[in-house]
Design a protein around this nucleic acid. Structure first.
Lengths: 232, 232
DNA sequence: GTTTGATTCAAACAGTCGATTGAAACAGCT
DNA sequence: AGCTGTTTCAATCGACTGTTTGAATCAAAC
């Protein structure tokens, strides 16, 4: 099982100016969005002259598109799709998948800029989005759908599986996209104790397994919501 | 049961210049975000001179905060919290709540600017967010938690209920916040048939009821995922 | 050393933006 | 009508932005 090998540091400064600009731009766009990120800031961070953007990329828009492309391509390269030994039960696979997704979205302080930039693009799609979907998102989606198909024992149609998959993704996505609001809604001590990737993964997985009849309902008929049994 | 009385038109042009600016600003901010929305465009749309923003609001930032405040206050005024007769089963209440949330987020062409602006604020919180949460979001959240508490028969703790509520909200939220990407992932005919508010409400509700042991699992033990039985 | 294309640079450009200003116009009151 | 506060206006300001420009510098090849 290959999961989340090693996250590269936020932004190593490449030698090549073009790469340096891409990296700096990725960070700025991830942090501030397209409109608020400025060429001057990007060039300062990349230690290049402002004309370099025109020279290497043509214009700001092109630079943005290339940054998004660079982000998902490097993610695909560095972080392969999760794979499991054939003996690993589907329950476990689902848990791992969800855990991995939550770690990526919420993990350790702050996700790398590539992930943050992709999230922005998902929320406000540009022409860069289609390729991001095909190159990065769809393969992950297919893995999740396959796991759910196993869990459902072939009893759900593809459309049904896709909707269940989207339900799972939606649950994880909320904490990332609206995390500040969640933080205002829920008591702080509860955020600290229960809103960590592992704990949320537990909940999201258990919710799914219960809904699919692969675990007892959340309300009982077993050890309760916090039980580790289903994934042990 | 009071649900979604009548949605006001997108933007009636008020008489009072201050109201006209607020309304125009709300639309612009909702459509383009804070950075890309300009005072000049707002003033043109409101048929006022550009100095009016300084006169009535002080600066752009203040105008934004007031727009968000105006949005949630008018929503609270116009669209009261859902209420049900005490004889209405919790299953039905949950379905209605989810349906209502999805209609608001995805409904008929395009939600009113107030909803769109609030969504933006949720995704990129400013100092306006806390009041939005307290005035608008929290009351709705409390309704949902209460419904879930009924469904769970008092067997889940408050933290557990809140997590289930967030799971439901996350599912609805995804279609709004990342609808374009969902549209790229899922076949077009499936989007058309199954990704309407009523159909999605059905799915989200059924998923929750199954997870809570208040309906058969999605995989069977009854009529299947598309059944209307649980809400009939 | 010369040539050629690539790369980098400082300065400049044109446009846009939020904010300001002093005056004009308006509205209400005496 | 005069006074006073409110509202609106056109012009302007200063800062910022993406983009361009012509020249200087660099690097590789001969």
């Amino acid at each position: 099982m290959a999961i989340q090998a090693h996250e590269s540091t936020e932004r190593r400064q490449p030698d090549d100016p073009r790469e340096r600009i891409l990296s700096a731009a990725g960070c700025e766009f991830a942090e501030r969005g397209y409109d608020a990120a400025t060429i001057r800031d990007i060039c300062a961070a990349a230690a290049v002259n402002i004309a370099a953007v025109n020279y290497y990329f043509g214009d700001k828009r092109r630079l943005y598109i290339e940054s998004v492309k660079h982000a998902h391509e490097s993610r695909v390269r560095q972080v392969p799709l999760p794979e499991w030994d054939s003996s690993v039960p589907a329950e476990r696979r689902l848990h791992d998948f969800v855990d991995n997704m939550l770690e990526r979205m919420l993990g350790l302080g702050q996700p790398p800029w590539q992930v943050r930039l992709m999230m922005r693009e998902v929320l406000q799609p540009t022409e860069a989005c289609r390729e991001l979907v095909e190159d990065y998102i769809r393969p992950h989606f297919a893995v999740l759908v396959a796991i759910l198909d196993d869990l459902a024992g072939g009893r759900l149609t593809q459309p049904e599986l896709r909707r269940v998959a989207l339900s799972i993704i939606g649950q994880c996505f909320l904490y990332r996209a609206a995390g500040d609001v969640v933080g205002m809604l829920v008591p702080a001590d509860e955020i600290e104790r229960l809103h960590t990737p592992p704990r949320l993964a537990e909940h999201v997985t258990r919710y799914a397994l219960a809904a699919l009849g692969r675990a007892a309902p959340l309300t009982g008929g077993g050890a309760g919501v916090s039980s580790q049994d289903v994934v042990a």
